[in-house]
Design a protein around this nucleic acid. Structure first.
Lengths: 136, 136
DNA sequence: CGGAATCCATTCGGATACTG
DNA sequence: CAGTATCCGAATGGATTCCG
């Protein structure tokens, strides 16, 4: 994967391995997916659902700081995209459970890696950030 | 991973393995990292830097749709957090190169997985989305 | 219990113009 | 070339109140 000439750039990108630079044709939907998944809460919701279905209030409890507005909103997006499922039981009091859909399971794995990485390296990141801040 | 009783729920979460539900203590900095990395462009920039250093205009070319404002802004955040490095060469015309820092390499791997997942499943996601839309 | 609706501040992010 | 500066609309996201 050495020097890269600018000739036949698109062909090279298509023929290269899985880790080559991103084909320009893919950029569009990568952006679409990232816009959905790369918001403040989606990854967290996906991550928290790993142990099975959770009710609305359980999700609220497990994700401190999220507002009802954002929880509801993000859940709807995720359901629309087929990443999670919503099951409402006709009882009183009403019960609604959210669970990972098959499509969401793949993303869940990535979410856990991201979270694991965040947990492992947040110290270094904060160190860098504060050093950069004091140099001003 | 079998049946789960509702007794001693919190204790179970604390004692469970590495993939168990997220420890509440970790939520804070997970959120901090996700807020930085989970924006519109960071992951894309990280991903695009895999083949070595890139100049400002190269980045702009490889990430269609990004504005100078956002490119500059996001690059600064990433440098501040120590995920990428910025090297300015005192030449005319000036040359500035951005590259993955060691800390950013770990994230790069995750970014590529996320992008790969997006490429693989964007069709299913769009299908779900349109079906949900037409059901209204 | 599980939301929907409204209001409002903050931030995101693009367009344009200008600079060293 | 590699940014900075300003303006402005759009989106994000929290607080609060209300509803089935």
């Amino acid at each position: 994967m050495g020097a890269m000439q600018d000739s036949t750039d698109t062909e090279m990108a298509a023929a290269a391995g899985p880790c080559a630079s991103i084909p320009a044709e893919h950029m569009a939907f990568i952006r679409q997916v990232l816009d959905r998944v790369g918001d403040k809460w989606s990854m967290l919701i996906i991550a928290v659902l790993e142990n099975g279905p959770l009710r609305y209030t359980d999700l609220q409890r497990r994700i401190p700081g999220i507002s009802q507005r954002m929880l509801t909103h993000t859940l709807r997006q995720l359901v629309e995209d087929g990443l999670i499922t919503r099951t409402a039981y006709a009882e009183v009091p009403p019960r609604v459970e959210y669970a990972l859909a098959p499509l969401g399971r793949g993303l869940h794995e990535i979410a856990m890696r991201l979270i694991g990485w965040a947990a492992d390296h947040h110290g270094e990141i904060l160190a860098h950030r504060s050093r950069a801040a004091e140099r001003d």
